[in-house]
């Protein structure tokens, strides 16, 4: 299997007054195609920073980030936007759907920015909605859907462009237990279908769905275990 993500020696430094703070202090990480990874860590650990860099929302101060063998750590804002559009699918804790658009229109959005025409977009969006079993809610506004359904629309939007990575930031954080199980099952199904998934969470139970768990602490990866082959569990604290 080929590497989707290759991060070597990544540092992210911030200036806080006269002091320089390292949010990430030398991170090396490889993720293979088709892996289901849980990214864990307490708040302030640098987990969010790492996720932003993985999602091409941010650039590292130092080090290299190769996404699908392409160096992306020094690209311009618009080039990164293009990569986010085609290679990365985002899911957020608070869904981040546009409230005035229907489910279908929300799912279509990435394809609009990619420049697909209407019929192509419709087809892609409907296919994605079918994958999360929400084709019958295509014309509903987010306000007419339950939390679990909204997250499924968000997942549909994330997978509509068939991205190389799906990046989910606490996707079950706002959901009840039943919906959480539902959403995690969708991720399992997507994983079974060959998608590469990075799931950011601080809940060990949620992380259990992944095959591999990575713990970030003080700007470094401190643990990296394959869940499937060990009984070890990562507790954040």
């Amino acid at each position: 299997m080929s590497n989707v993500v290759t991060i070597t020696g990544v540092k992210k430094l911030y200036k806080m007054g006269s002091e320089i703070v390292a949010a990430l202090n030398g991170v090396d990480l490889k993720i293979d195609s088709g892996e289901f990874v849980a990214l864990m860590g307490p708040s302030g650990s640098g987990k969010s920073t790492l996720m932003n860099i993985l999602g091409c929302l941010d650039r590292p101060t130092e080090g290299s980030y190769k996404l699908l063998d392409k160096e992306v750590s020094r690209l311009s804002d618009d080039e990164l936007a293009g990569i986010r559009n085609k290679t990365i699918g985002f899911c957020y804790q608070n869904f981040n759907l546009l409230s005035k658009l229907t489910s279908l229109e929300n799912v279509e959005l990435p394809a609009i920015y990619a420049g697909f025409n209407k019929t192509e977009r419709r087809k892609m969006a409907m296919a994605a909605l079918e994958k999360v079993s929400l084709a019958d809610r295509a014309e509903h506004l987010p306000s007419e859907l339950s939390g679990g359904q909204r997250q499924r629309v968000a997942i549909a939007r994330a997978i509509a462009m068939k991205p190389a990575i799906i990046l989910a930031d606490e996707p079950t954080g706002n959901l009840d237990t039943k919906s959480t199980v539902e959403i995690l099952q969708i991720f399992r199904d997507l994983h079974a279908g060959g998608s590469t998934i990075i799931l950011v969470t601080h809940e060990p139970d949620v992380a259990q769905s992944a095959d591999r768990q990575i713990l970030v602490k003080d700007g470094k990866i401190t643990k990296d275990i394959i869940t499937a082959s060990t009984d070890e569990r990562i507790d954040i604290i």
């Binding site: 985002f90 981040n96 546009l98 990619a114």
Partner: peptide
Amino acid sequence: GIRKAIGATYNS
């Protein structure tokens, strides 16, 4: 923010 995250460029 959402639009930019899913790929909207500066110009769009």
